[in-house]
Write a protein that binds this DNA or RNA. Sequence first.
DNA 1: CCACTATTCAACCGATTGGTTAAATACCCT
DNA 2: AGGGTATTTAACCAATCGGTTGAATAGTGG
Lengths: 120, 120
Amino acid sequence: MADDRLSLVFSALADSTRRDIVARLASGDATVNELAEPYDVTVQAVSKHIRVLESAGLVSRSRDAQRRPCHLEAEVFDLMTKWIERYRREAEDRFRRLDALLEQMDDQPVTGDATKEAAS
Amino acid sequence: MADDRLSLVFSALADSTRRDIVARLASGDATVNELAEPYDVTVQAVSKHIRVLESAGLVSRSRDAQRRPCHLEAEVFDLMTKWIERYRREAEDRFRRLDALLEQMDDQPVTGDATKEAAS
DNA sequence: CCACTATTCAACCGATTGGTTAAATACCCT
DNA sequence: AGGGTATTTAACCAATCGGTTGAATAGTGG
């Protein structure tokens, strides 16, 4: 389950430590040890986090002797942004239409019969 | 853990059923039963999904007799978009700088010194 | 070669997750 | 009041998650 790309990306970023790692990688590549240093968890735990980010396609790695520098892959962000923007736009459009409708109803108040409105 | 807003939102959207629900709500409010209908899971499971979306602030609900229509809250999307855009931009800028550097190195291959004009 | 550094693998643990079934609640309608 | 519909709560289950410790692997560099 949840092996589709979008699920992997969202769930990778659902963890604040991983988001933090992404934030740090945004300003430059770093090794596992470097990334682990600021946290009070073990380096193994950080290694696992990186693997999660990697399998979501958010991070790639190269070799430098025994080090495995991590590099942030920016393209994947597009996937999320596109998804988010799409539904946000739809929802906002609907909201605007409703808003317009309400305003219109406000302009010409309830003339006719007894629809009971919740007036507070 | 993970009780910060961003974690809640990302983890809510890390599930494809929940993303699907969001997608459907983007084109109009719907009740729990309506939302549950297309899936082969129980309505209780869908109710749980909605609760997750609700506590992430992605969905709000009203009352209509015994029904609880769900409504998509568009504002929360901003939170994600801002986060994503921020780090994507940083990562892309770095990528561009690196790209420029590599091109520059390509223009003037590793000779000792002398040539310092890279032209374009 | 050997010791040291960097990273991963393996096994385990408690908490959370997504799902189930069964029962409870809430509300409408006749 | 009572039956029907919509939804939630409760208790449970297997799987996954984030973390640990301990051991293994990979590669450098004196």
